[in-house]
Design a binder for these strands. Structure first.
Lengths: 162, 162
DNA sequence: GTCCCTATACTCGGATAGCAAGTGTCCGAGTATAGGCGG
DNA sequence: CCGCCTATACTCGGACACTTGCTATCCGAGTATAGGGAC
C-alpha cells in the first residue's frame, strides 16, 4: 500500500494550475522546472490528468495544461484517482470458497466480511479526499505560506507566461 | 495504491487462527491448503505476522502458527501493517521547496497542506481498520455464514489437528 | 496599410528502455514426538 | 514395568529466481504564432 510518487507531483501541479489566470495554460516543462522534477516523467502524469478529464491540454505555442473545471469542482480524490487509477485498493478473490471446506455458491449469500471491512476503510479514505478541493488547498497556501513565497511564485508564473 | 494480495490471505488466516482452541497451532501448509493458495508463498506472509508480533510460531511436530494475543486484541490494522509494512502510504518529498521560487527554510513554517490532506485520509483509513478486531470478523462469520459451512470448517480443523 | 501565406518553433502524445518491489519457490536449521533399549 | 535415549519426521526461517508495474526518457504528430510578401 504505497502511493506512487506521481500523486504528490500531480496534486502540487493541480494547485499551481488553479493559480493561473482564467484560460491560461502552463507547459509541462515549466511545471517540472517549478517543482524540480524530471520533465519527461511529469508529462506522463499530466497526460493521465488530461485523460481523466481533470485537466485539459492545449497544443502549440502558449499551450500547456490547465484545469478542465473550476478549482472548486476538482477534488483531491479526482487528481489521485487520475494518476493511480480508480481500481479499489483491496480486491477480494473469494478465497473462502476455495480449499477443502468449500461449499456450493448458496453457502455464501453475503459479501465477505473481510472484504467489506477493507472496503469500508477505503471508502473513508476516499471520503476525506473527496471533501477537499484544489481550491481549498490553494486557499490554505495563500493564508499559511510566507507572503514572500507567494509573491515569488506569482512573479515566476507571470515571468514564464510572458 | 494497490494492496498486496498477501493482505487478504493474512486476514483470512488470522481469522482461522482465532477459531483454534486455546494454545493450539496450525501449520502454514494447512492454512494454505484451506485457502487454496501457494504454501511456500503464504509462509512468507505468516512469517511477517510472526515478525510483527501478531502471531507466534511453534516449530516441530504439532507446531505451526497461532495468534500471539487474544483475538479481541488483534485489530485488522495490525494484520495489514504486519504484511504491508507500516510506512505511510503518502510520503511528502517537499517539492514545494525546490525549483525557481524556493526560499529559505523559514519560508515554510507549516507542514505542507497537501501532505496533511493525504495523511488525514490515511488516518481515517487506519481508524476504521483499527476499530475492527479479528474477533469481530469471526463473530460476523459465525452469525452470517451458512451453518453447514461453519460446521465443515470446524470439522476440517479437528481433522487436521488430530 | 492590410491581408494572406508560409515557415518556424513550441507543445502534447504515445512508444520505448531500466529498475525496484512484489510474487513464487526452495532447502537448511531447529524441535517435539514416537519408538526402542536398557535397567 | 518404567525411564532414558536416539532417530525420525515435521515445522519454521531465511536465501534464491521470476514477473509485474512503477520510473525515466525520447522522438514524432499537431498547432498557434511571427514574419515576410503580395495587393
Amino acid at each position: 500500500m504505497q502511493l506512487s510518487e506521481g500523486v504528490e507531483w500531480a496534486v502540487h501541479c493541480a494547485t499551481v494550475l488553479a493559480a493561473l489566470p482564467p484560460g491560461a495554460a502552463l507547459p509541462a516543462a515549466r511545471l517540472a522546472e517549478f517543482h524540480g522534477v524530471p520533465p519527461a516523467y511529469l508529462a506522463k502524469h499530466l497526460q493521465a490528468l488530461s485523460a481523466a478529464g481533470v485537466a485539459e491540454s492545449v497544443r502549440g505555442p502558449r499551450g500547456g495544461y490547465r484545469l478542465a473545471r473550476p478549482a472548486e469542482q476538482v477534488s483531491v480524490l479526482d487528481v489521485v484517482l487520475a494518476v493511480e487509477g480508480d481500481r479499489p485498493a483491496f480486491s477480494c478473490s473469494e478465497i473462502r470458497r476455495r480449499g477443502p471446506s468449500a461449499g456450493p455458491d448458496g453457502w455464501y449469500p453475503h459479501v465477505c466480511t473481510i472484504a467489506r471491512t477493507m472496503w469500508d476503510a477505503e471508502a473513508e479514505w476516499r471520503r476525506v479526499l473527496a471533501a477537499r478541493t484544489i481550491a481549498d488547498l490553494l486557499g490554505d497556501i495563500a493564508c499559511a505560506a510566507e507572503p514572500a513565497a507567494v509573491a515569488a511564485t506569482v512573479a515566476w508564473i507571470d515571468e514564464v507566461r510572458r
